[in-house]
Design a protein around this nucleic acid. Sequence first.
DNA 1: TTGAAAGCGCTAACAG
DNA 2: CTGTTAGCGCTTTCAA
Lengths: 344, 344
Amino acid sequence: MNRSTIGDVAKRAGVSKSTVSHVINNTRFVEENTRQKVFHAIRELDYRPSSVARSLVSKRTHTVGLLISEVRNPFYSEVIYGVEDVALAHGYNVFLCNTSYDLDRGLRFIQSLIDKQVDGVLLMSSNLSPSWLTELEQRHIPSVVLDWEVKTTGEFLSTIQLDFETGINAAVDHLIKLGHKRFAHVSGQLHLRTSRVRRDIFLNALQRHGIDPAEVAVVEGNYLIDGGQKALAELLSAAQRPTAIFAANDLTALGIIWAARDRGLRVPEDLSIVGLDNIELAAQIVPRLTTVALPRHEIGGLAMNMLLELLDISKEAPSQSKTRTQVVKSSLVIRQSTAQPPNL
Amino acid sequence: MNRSTIGDVAKRAGVSKSTVSHVINNTRFVEENTRQKVFHAIRELDYRPSSVARSLVSKRTHTVGLLISEVRNPFYSEVIYGVEDVALAHGYNVFLCNTSYDLDRGLRFIQSLIDKQVDGVLLMSSNLSPSWLTELEQRHIPSVVLDWEVKTTGEFLSTIQLDFETGINAAVDHLIKLGHKRFAHVSGQLHLRTSRVRRDIFLNALQRHGIDPAEVAVVEGNYLIDGGQKALAELLSAAQRPTAIFAANDLTALGIIWAARDRGLRVPEDLSIVGLDNIELAAQIVPRLTTVALPRHEIGGLAMNMLLELLDISKEAPSQSKTRTQVVKSSLVIRQSTAQPPNL
DNA sequence: TTGAAAGCGCTAACAG
DNA sequence: CTGTTAGCGCTTTCAA
């Protein structure tokens, strides 16, 4: 009735538990004859080793936790996909933890993951609390964090930095070259660090081209379509309308584009829009969106690979922890949502 | 150095392991005094019980597996979100398993989940193999499957049926009432059961209105935007152009709409489009999409709740397994992508 | 070439 | 009111 154990197999095959264990794990020589008997018994009983029991002794669960802000955000979907892919290839399972941008909720996930003894954790949510890190470092749990400044005290912490600068600078160069002079930005929620980073890079780039940041309208969006839509309304009611808008992400850019169309503004003839993310849709909407691209799928894969590296080391040579920092560059994908400003 | 165990706590508090266990789990009376000593020791050692060890004895992991076809599909994102939400609320963690429509890959996931002793499994991928089910039933693992005809032999299997019929029928009624006579359908991959179901419901509904299914063009798409785009090209090259197209899902519908615009066709003036899913985008594109809606978030939550029900019962009263079947209805959301056919 | 036995961290009789 | 003890299903010395 109940699932069979290694003891059942041993009895059935007429050998000891340790022999069974060894043939399963190929961990010492066993005579071909007895090997076959064991395999037979396994087959007959439909035996599968319990990873719970294994984990109890080995201290490894072949499981990792993945914290993200929001599954429904296409950016994270891609990242998840990348993580999943290399995890599966290496025999790991992943606990998906959707923090919903809630730090407390995230902390509860972390604790639950620790209780479940995950081998490592991927911290990819766009906001994270230092308490998460201390919780993990205290327990020596290998982690990799995405896009977050961290005093890399830990010997178990690798980081991936997203270089938004390269791509955003290129975008500004591109717009300036087209002749734009009046800019605006629709940010993400400004209490999120990443929102401020994107904004500041944009403003700095403009400043290098002699444009006073104080004259650049910044409206706060929410990384969602409706945020972009509302932001555009606000921008259009200003005295000086911008001719080019940089959106904090593609969803926001879509919102802007559609809201513009609703108001009879043509993109890019009347208004140039640049997004950020390069979600799948970006290449398919009309007009196809000019955007700052991040290799999302690769980011997921890279993160998981870096984690695996940490795991190998923490197992094999606990002394020489090789925590890494990797930078992932953004780049500008020029499509059809940008053009010369009107009246030129 | 290493994480402290219940033994450490017991020693520190000067009591036995069982006492510690009992105060942690509130499982028998312990004098307030000793309770406090135990809590103190726990605090001092920063002790957290190992769920691995617990699971070994309790046979429960408070973990479930969630199989879906594709994280990047917005439909699944929402479902995942719903599942996650109620899972967290009940102290469960979820293993995300992205099958990529690959039956073998799915089977490997299932086996891995069984090895890891998940308490239950949510089978929500759009195609599944019978072998998955037998694997699960053999091990008496409670499962709920989404939208799949299953000879409900198992006492551990609940099902959710998606009633596409209500919504699709309403869509056809709507189009007929508008005056359409020439219809087409862009399906999903026809080797997927759900694709055939959607198509057949559509064709049957038309037939009830006196329209010969043989005269309805059906082009195979892929549930993605580009599939819709290519399909439209094919449909337009036919002698008899349709005036109304039913797309197997919203992404496909978007593809059709955008491809139509690229070719100078106006939606809905020249061509009416109905989608299926009601993804977030559907309400925000121009024109806003008329579509057959499924309550995706609720589906995820419902599934997880049904699974929890199964778990409770399999724990508390193994005799009276209450496997359920629940039907989730679709409905038509009328927006702006449908109108009277041209030349009327 | 194989077995016996200890132990991983916890729970749950069974005693007292 | 609390402690002792025997497992849960596996891996891994240590012996033979």
